[in-house]
Design a protein around this nucleic acid. Structure first.
Lengths: 251, 251
DNA sequence: GCCCGGCTTTTACATTTGTTAGTCAATACT
DNA sequence: AGTATTGACTAACAAATGTAAAAGCCGGGC
């Protein structure tokens, strides 16, 4: 719960009562094994899932098996607030690493948001940020080269993990395989491997399948054309700061 | 206004009063010249834009000029309901063709949605559909080949235009240049040109920069691996039907 | 300590897609 | 009519990325 509150407080300031209300949502977390579906396309889930620990993903597949990861969740992220309006899921959600989730019923959410409009606004904010992220991914897929794309993803992970205190020094726990990165970026595993070696050779990162180390945030961000604006982190109060200034390259 | 109501009624059934309320939103439409920005990244717009006529786009650019179109709007689409929560636009909106828009103030929207919860729900639905579309685009960019991607886009245009009665026979007015298609699909113009020729040669479509003709919806959809589920059109009442059955290809 | 299986890495090669630059037809401008 | 402009199309070539298959690595069970 902590992570959720910490995240929301990047957007707004809660009263103790509100914080209490959020904290009281805690049901027992359920543990989901790695690579297991949490919600599947076509389902009609009755509640939302709050990620307490681990990495979960949103993905979509083509009938012939090609699969694309559309986004990921870290602790403090809520999976599907939208469920209340649309009937059928048009995509799936799965655990990437072992994941602990809390299921929160629709009723519970509605009660809380009715009572605390500020919480409703904050939750709404998180879904809008998520949309913004998915727009940035679209930009990445369409315009960034493979290397820029992966570098950009790493920058994003770094920032998002920082919000919920998952970064130590410049290191983030990131227990992913290269095929996962491939599915996130729309590349082949082989090419992901090439790019990773390249990024390592350039002294930008270190990644061993467990821990991602950003050797030079400034350089990595410049390389990836990364601008954290799309994460909308400084909208409520200005906490997280930019690692390096953006230098526009051309008109 | 007609188009908006027609679209929303794919999701819900309105009372006359509600229809009235929606219709009464009509301010004078403003005409925006082709390729002109309507809202620019960084702006903080005070209202939402309802597209009355023409095609508008949502786009995002990299500092070095590379540009990606993230989605498009046809008549009846509302641009930015989300504006009420996020402060700064993280992307821009522009007219692609000449466009007629109605600006609706935040106040007006709030009054209406307060009074008519069903309208609020319906508007919410449209933004969720938009999100769903952008997820499908992500899938396209990551997994579909250039030809599938363009074919899929054409299918989507065909369906979305049908909802608001913009299709005659199998023909849709689509006054786009090949560079526009390139920016929508993340391809170079040259390659778009190659792919178009290929699709024509296969007898799937006809496109002359003004009118898109789908020669065989079934074949085109099969080729594009198109499944209209993501458009969530049949959720309220089952009006729009599938052109052809989906045949899964593999496990 | 050894074998197995899941990942990563490498290699060689195929394919797709991008680049640059030029032609052509239609249209708009003067 | 003559000229500029714009967008479609071609061509030749370059670069990015994918494919298939094999080799190496490493930790876990036995």
């Amino acid at each position: 719960m902590d992570a959720l509150i910490r995240k929301l407080e990047h957007f707004t300031q809660f009263t103790d009562e509100e914080r209490q209300a959020l904290a009281s949502l805690s049901d027992l977390p359920v543990v989901v094994g790695p690579r297991q579906d949490i919600i599947r396309e076509g389902d009609n889930p009755t509640g939302v899932n709050l990620i307490v620990e681990g990495y979960a993903i949103r993905y979509k597949a083509l009938p012939d098996g090609r699969r694309q990861i559309l986004g990921y969740f870290v602790s403090g992220d809520i999976c599907d607030l939208r469920v209340f309006v649309l009937k059928r899921m048009d995509h799936s959600i799965a655990a990437l690493t072992p994941v602990a989730v809390r299921v929160i019923s629709e009723k519970r959410i509605l009660e809380m948001t009715d009572r605390y409009p500020r919480i409703m606004r904050a939750l709404w904010w998180t879904t809008l940020v998520e949309e913004s992220i998915s727009r940035e991914w679209l930009l990445s897929m369409g315009q960034r080269t493979a290397a820029e794309r992966i570098a950009h993803l790493f920058c994003e992970i770094y920032y998002r993990a920082r919000i919920v205190d998952l970064v130590e020094g410049h290191r983030v726990a990131l227990p992913l395989r290269q095929t996962d990165l491939a599915e996130m970026t729309g590349l082949s595993v082989v090419h992901v491997n090439r790019v990773l070696q390249d990024l390592r050779k350039q002294g930008l990162i270190t990644f061993d399948g467990q821990v991602l180390t950003i050797l030079s945030p400034e350089k990595l961000e410049a390389f990836a054309l990364f601008d954290p604006l799309y994460l909308h982190m400084d909208e409520g109060k200005g906490t997280v700061t930019r690692t390096a200034p953006v230098t526009a390259r051309a008109g």
